[in-house]
Design a protein around this nucleic acid. Sequence first.
DNA 1: GAATAATGTGAGCAAATCCTCAGTTTGTAA
DNA 2: TTACAAACTGAGGATTTGCTCACATTATTC
Lengths: 195, 195
Amino acid sequence: MASILLRKRPTQQRSRQTIEVILEAAAQVLEAGGLATFNTNAVAARAGVSVGSIYQYFPGKDAVMVALIRREAARFEAGLTAALATLADRPLAEAVPQLVRLAVDGQTERPQLARILDMEERRLGLEAEVAESAQTTTAQLTRFLADHTVPDAATSALDLQNLVRGMIDGAPGAPPDELTGRIVRAALGYLSPGA
Amino acid sequence: MASILLRKRPTQQRSRQTIEVILEAAAQVLEAGGLATFNTNAVAARAGVSVGSIYQYFPGKDAVMVALIRREAARFEAGLTAALATLADRPLAEAVPQLVRLAVDGQTERPQLARILDMEERRLGLEAEVAESAQTTTAQLTRFLADHTVPDAATSALDLQNLVRGMIDGAPGAPPDELTGRIVRAALGYLSPGA
DNA sequence: GAATAATGTGAGCAAATCCTCAGTTTGTAA
DNA sequence: TTACAAACTGAGGATTTGCTCACATTATTC
């Protein structure tokens, strides 16, 4: 059965490498010229690969985008899982700053790219397969909040993700330490109302 | 001197009307099919106007986008100015909920459109002329916060805008009342840390 | 090393899209 | 009414872009 995400299964090492090269090239194209310059020819050229190779594995332009989004999401999710495991039995006041910091750092590494991927994640958000990865991080956060007796954990998880994302995306270039502190203030305020 | 935003100055009533029709058509195209279907031909067709008419007044596709962004921003800014005047000497705990509600309602009226314009505002954000209107609302908020003895008013204004925007954009279809309440919690938490 | 499968190539087709410009229609003013 | 300016039209030129396919190259298997 053919995937919507991958047209053909790579079996040799060579092709797996090619896919990696394509994705990294896509990332670089996005960073260099934004969405406007993101087209298959540009990606192929940057990857040092022919257009045909892209279509060997990706059914279309958007599929490349989706793969990139998933790659970055997976990276973040790995960090999140680890962090949550460590922080499982710590109080919110201690856990939240570390989680926020994780998000800030993730977005700070390649800020241009991260912002574009956020945008595209929304644009492609209708398709179920794309939303999946985002949902697993939300699910993890939800469980964590529920374990900390936060009411309405699911809604809170979503709100917090959006809050953090909005503040990070809107303040590119801000010093990570200070930005983290300010976001933490908002997040803890959200979690402990009316104090 | 020709503007970057408007190629030719409309002098007759008729042409001013045409510009309005074009902008509203652009809004409808965006709502109906998203960014992907936003092209000059589609806008012209929807407006019941020839492509040429668009280029009479707008130097290009993006200029239409910018004009739309400015139109919506102006609308919001008018409401903000009025609200801030009323709330000038009220405490934050009372003012913030009303301001948040204003933002929520603004985004709720035409949610699809509002989200796309937010995205495009960022994409076009490099050009100074575009950022201008966003800056004036930030400036108003900054002044308001400073009058309420909020430290670092400029940074806080920006953070709060981003926080609010992120939470609203990320929760489309949420009940305005509840969403407003949750955003207020975060905003007040941001403003009164460590309570 | 021959046969088969996997992978890679890139010219170029089809379609989409931006925008122009020569010509027409509508408004204004003397 | 006439002369001029403003506004509008829309076919189509120029360009961009997604994508295919016939063919070449590299790996694997027997």
